[in-house]
Write a protein that binds this DNA or RNA. Structure first.
Lengths: 287, 287, 287
DNA sequence: ATAGGTTTTGTCAAGCTTTTGTACAT
DNA sequence: ATGTACAAAAGCTTGACAAAACCTAT
């Protein structure tokens, strides 16, 4: 295993603790003992990052720095998977570090210790939200977001294997034409699968006629179209209306509102993907 | 295989890294070792391009260039395609070595690459069969088998989480009293879940009154009792008869034959757990 | 366990009692006896915070300060949590109803909100104790207990994933031959993992030769054997003596007493699984 | 409650070194 | 293409400082 090591400035950026303070914590409390590069630069590992984050959290909670350091140092270096927040933090760190193996390990720990819905709601959705916000503020690099997306999508699709089998009601899922963000849609599908539904997944940027063809051929109990911006749906408002005439159509995502849904003859889903899946499962069955 | 090779300008254009910098990375960190053309031009392969992209992504994420190069060079050029037999072999080795984490990693590789039913049929069932044969021949249990059973059981129960949700028919699964081998029953449950059923799992060594109580409370579409030896079932033949009177009872495992099942008023299931699950799903639904 | 301690200002902010008054209560009534830091600062524990809150509530209710202090000092310190009891109750209900998914959801809520050790101590151990008492009184097993045990076991083994990784000392855990109650052993393993140990888990009903083989192959810092009844251990007393000769052997569970342990050349562990893990971690390390 | 002294802790400065992308001459 | 050079950015160490928080005693 090759350690991912960063210098003090990067650690400072990631943790929000200034380089000066990091050095002070090292000098005064022995909080960190980074190895040095040839040029005598400090090199920090992800475990160090976890320590600093823990320290910072305690200090912000009002614990004196010296005490916080004592506590952090007394804790085992490797927290067991039994610790939810630690595992969630490890996932974030691994994704930031382009650490493919580490990301998978952290996800494994989370998913084997906790239910999928909890992991989705408490870890994955907040992470997606954070990426979105950072992207808006221009803080995250394209490469980083891309890496995280690829890792998560691959992993979630792995979980999704065989999700179209069984005897439950069937749902056909797609992103609106032009809409490329599909992680939320996959989470939605997995949550719905957890309720016993069968999923037919068409993925990102699905042309409306593909969707209509699938709908005609499968006669699903629900057709779901997701869009993060309103424009994507308005552009195909007419076709959606046609589709709604022949299948139970649901619209989801931030680009949806009640007015638009009604205009299409569709029904809106609300909230995050996990909540929306519960809403659909509750509402569609009695029909 | 003839490599498609490009010159430095083209590589720079593709990766967004200037030619000067590419040369600097080669000189300082040995990141690349391109072959030379007749005119002493550098010629790069797709693997080189992958290296440069990985390097660039890390540097943009804040990792110092020297560190990034060290990491990129330490990684295998192409992450080996998941090879089924290799992963299966790794699983066997890890289980022999009492290596919990290694076993999980191997199982992860198998399950993320090949789907549950394949893994069950090609790896887990043969393993169970081998244990069963040894046991039949009266060979003393090999020490590692105990560990392996515990690891696999924990892992499969992890896959099983939430398997009673949904709208499908419900099955209540149990081992006969005294029967401790439950791996097969878990595989059976997972295969049945794959068919859309809901599973209530009572596990090894289930007292008959526990089973009867669960059956009354849940009114399942099937109650399944497993035993590897005939004696376990004969010992509770009377109670099984009572249970069969109030619920659809199925018997499975090597300890079952048609005569015994009939005598109890139950129906037999045949073959390995995956096959038996298919049989139950096919036979129980039309009822 | 490392205490989280705060200084007087933070305690004042948290309780709404001024630093001056806190010092006065200490001087006049001996309400608190905080330890001092190197620089002679007072350091308060969460128990102190509970005391101050109780004191404040009484004073505001009109009780004279001296009287209030006397009452508070006579009371045991117990921090309560309403959220916690609600989630614990939901778990109990779901387990009673054979509701697998509901049980997992309740466990998710507990584990992600309160941390493993708290949940173990406040929910799971009392549950085990209740089962144990019923069993001792010879009451027939309630059907639900069987289901509950299976669910909890699967869940805890999920949390245990990867618990043999890391660099800490290694422990090999097993139930004595014939001993089928393994929930306590898993809790013990998880608590020990929380102390930084690596765990190799052999589970219920472990033949002595399996245990010996694992011990020889892994050379652990501790081998632990659990039994709830004394007979299980006496039946293998000779083999335990041999094992104790080649590895540090510890015995735990209600079936252990000092005399028996000494006769085997082993050392006894006391109290519930979490306490026993702390005992082992404290005693085995200096060796 | 105030006064006067001590401890804690985040921040800064000066002077020097290392890293790393880019530039230029041959 | 090669080899050398350069300069901006980032780091290192030592030492110090000052605001906030805390102590005791009156």
């Amino acid at each position: 295993m090759v350690e991912r090591r960063v210098r003090i400035g990067e650690l400072a950026r990631r943790t929000g603790v200034s380089p000066d303070l990091l050095r002070a914590w090292e000098r005064r409390y022995g909080l960190l003992a980074p190895v040095r590069s040839d040029g005598n630069y400090r090199l920090y590992t992800p475990a160090d990052e976890a320590r600093v984050s823990a320290m910072k959290a305690r200090v912000e909670a009002g614990v004196p720095a010296g005490e916080a350091a004592r506590i952090v140092l007394a804790e085992p270096v490797l927290p067991g998977a039994a610790d939810f927040t630690a595992a969630a933090g490890a996932l974030g760190t691994a994704l930031e570090d382009f650490d493919d193996a580490g990301s998978h390990a952290a996800l494994d720990a989370l998913l084997s210790g906790f239910g999928f819905e909890t992991v989705a709601r408490e870890v994955l959705l907040p992470y997606l939200r954070r990426i979105g916000e950072r992207w808006e503020r221009g803080e995250t690099t394209v490469a980083q977001e891309h890496f995280a997306t690829v890792v998560l999508r691959g992993r979630l699709l792995g979980l999704a294997r065989g999700w179209d089998r069984g005897t439950g009601p069937r749902a056909v899922l797609s992103c609106a034409p032009g809409e490329l963000h599909e992680l939320g849609l996959i989470l939605f599908g997995l949550a719905l699968r957890g309720q016993g539904w069968r999923i037919t997944y068409l993925g990102a940027d699905t042309p409306l006629d593909s969707l209509t063809a699938a709908s005609r051929s499968l006669q699903p109990a629900a057709v779901v179209v997701v869009a993060l911006t309103r424009g994507r749906l308005e552009a195909v408002r007419a076709e959606l209306g046609v589709l709604a005439g022949e299948a139970p159509l649901w619209l989801a995502g931030a680009g949806v509102d009640a007015e638009l849904a009604e205009a299409c003859g569709a029904r809106p889903l609300h909230g995050d993907p996990v909540a929306a899946a519960a809403e659909l499962a509750g509402a569609a069955l009695p029909v």
